[in-house]
Design a protein around this nucleic acid. Structure first.
Lengths: 342, 342
DNA sequence: CTGAAAGCGCTTACAG
DNA sequence: CTGAAAGCGCTTACAG
């Protein structure tokens, strides 16, 4: 392990002060171009690397943004993260990423870690069973910027970056109704979470608008896994009332359901029309292609990171904004197209 | 922004020395249980949080592991990352994650960032067009542990965590041959990368074993996107020699091909049998289900992180190991099952 | 345009 | 079991 070069080594070898070396390395205005060039060359030659800890300790800033997601391995989340990473990296910020694995307890511990790591800001999509935001108190008290994205909390005074989930649910359901569906079930996730609760509200609104009575037993609150899909399909089969439409709040689960329905002899969309959510790439490559609600994951990640960085750099104050709602829209494909397209 | 509490504040308020506070907070043996309890309580009461920069600066250690992946938003990579995060988090390490977006240039810059962030170790899956490992020189010179996973480099003296890609390619191809395929094309990624080059070698070995001549024009070196799939299917259609087997080195692209082939009237597996790679969850939910090679992504992430942490904690020396090869195996499903299963 | 000096908040070898 | 003191490598207000 070779010795680390410091600004003192550079200063000594150039017979100047460490202060000047520090300034030159940070491209401070007050240093002459000559001196700068000299110092940069020497630094390069000696294999110098800045010590971020010393710098952070002195500047009381970390250039690191924390991110907590429910799971890393979901198409949506990894797409959002990709967007965040891109923006953060370009702006010279690092991302510290952890996953709550849908556990409130783990989320609390993740928040603590982020706090102790002194991230300059924190971006969070909450877990399935998160209750309240007391565990973010430390961030709020210290005025450390906090942004929620996708899954947000009620009554949050922080910036929330979302899509209009009510509209998403409404559009999907309305579309199914327009295609002639009379009895539409809704397969969703934990209704504690805004994304699922709002989509269901949209579902209810559309039903009401079309004069279709809402039935509680048509709501399947699940964990959206393959297993959940299996149970839903079983229920469809055993149902006394004919089910002719399915609105699933997640593409992967929707595709699972479609596959099983097909195997059981249902024709899609003729017997049962299906709409998913997120516009996962897989929706386009399966047969029939899955109608879905476009979810701007990459954009959401980029905008969240951009907002955070602008705030940190004083170019913007996220304290004044409560919601940023991104555009999202229904994409009609084969799984729900019963009528001739116009 | 409330003032940060330091060990000095705790020391003053308790009329003891900061050294004792530091020791107590780190559960040092030499501090009496009483004093420890007292200090911990006070720290809690005052809202103390340790300053990692000061601590890192002093200890010359960061408790942070860097990870560079080609893309965050790929099923395989996000699964690997999930495994890494789990292990790292449990061991009290943080993960600094960046993506190279398949660009050698960006990878070089990522490595530099990691170096300057003084990660304790670095885990990398290289980009499409990475050449050599000169850009890791700084890590090697400083003896900072470096682990490659999935996509590795030739002649690397570091620890590489991989699956047996040759065997994977061999198994897939052999299976297609056993199912009666006479003319199998192979759709793959950049052949500079071990994963793709090795799978092709396996493909060639199986052909050779069955006395089937290898034809260069049966190799499609692509970027494995939907567009690439489209071109391959076009080529299949226009081909003068009948093509009856497709081995694609990535499930998503395989599914894309399957979808288009079906639309063009091909029956799968009767006309054309298809095998993918990775065992992406989507392989099970499409119709016909896709035969594929199981890839232990989560395990790979866990083992990489575990190896790194054990090395950092002195429990193991990765300097003595060159390769860790994880188990992986062919999973036969409907897309390639022409013979009755035994 | 450059320097001297203080201080960011810890940890630890040394001493008792 | 506890303390005094030095030092990790920077940055910056102040002075010139």
């Amino acid at each position: 392990m070779s010795k680390e070069i410091t600004i003192y080594d550079i200063a000594n070898s150039l017979k100047i002060s460490p202060a000047t070396v520090s300034r030159a390395l940070n491209n401070h205005d007050a240093i002459s171009t000559n001196t700068k060039a000299l110092i940069h060359a020497k630094a390069e030659e000696m294999g110098y690397r800045s010590n971020k800890f010393a710098s952070n300790l002195r500047k009381q800033k970390t250039n690191t943004i924390g991110v907590i997601v429910p799971r890393l391995n979901s198409t949506l989340m990894s797409t959002i993260l990709a967007g965040m990473e891109k923006v953060a990296n370009e702006a010279g910020y690092n991302l510290l990423i952890t996953q709550s694995l849908e556990s409130f307890k783990k989320e609390i511990s993740n928040v603590k870690t982020m706090f102790n790591s002194r991230v300059d800001g924190l971006m969070v999509s909450v877990s399935y069973d998160t209750e309240g935001y007391e565990h973010f108190r430390s961030f709020i008290d210290k005025n450390i910027p906090l942004i929620f994205f996708d899954r947000t909390l009620d009554k949050s005074e922080c910036l929330n970056i979302v899509i209009d989930n009510i509209k998403g649910g409404y559009d999907a359901t309305k579309h199914l109704l327009e295609q002639g569906c009379k009895n539409i079930i809704h397969v969703t996730g934990n209704l504690k979470r805004n994304v699922y609760a709002d989509r269901m509200r949209g579902y209810q609104q559309a039903l009401a608008e079309f004069g279709v009575p809402f039935k509680q037993h048509n709501i399947f609150e699940t964990d959206l896994t393959t297993e959940a899909g299996r149970k839903v399909v079983q229920a469809i089969k055993l149902s006394e009332e004919k089910i002719d439409g399915v609105f699933v709040t997640n593409d992967f689960c929707a595709v699972t359901c479609m596959g099983m329905l097909k195997k059981m002899g249902y024709s899609i969309p003729k017997d049962i029309a299906v709409v998913g959510f997120n516009n996962d790439p897989l929706t386009e490559i399966i047969t029939p292609s899955l109608s879905t609600v476009y979810y701007p994951g990459k954009e959401m990640g980029e905008i969240a990171a951009k907002s955070m960085i602008n705030h940190l750099n004083g170019l913007m104050d996220i304290g004044h904004t409560n919601y940023i709602v991104l555009k999202s829209e229904l994409i009609v494909r084969d799984s729900s197209s019963r009528l001739p397209k116009n």
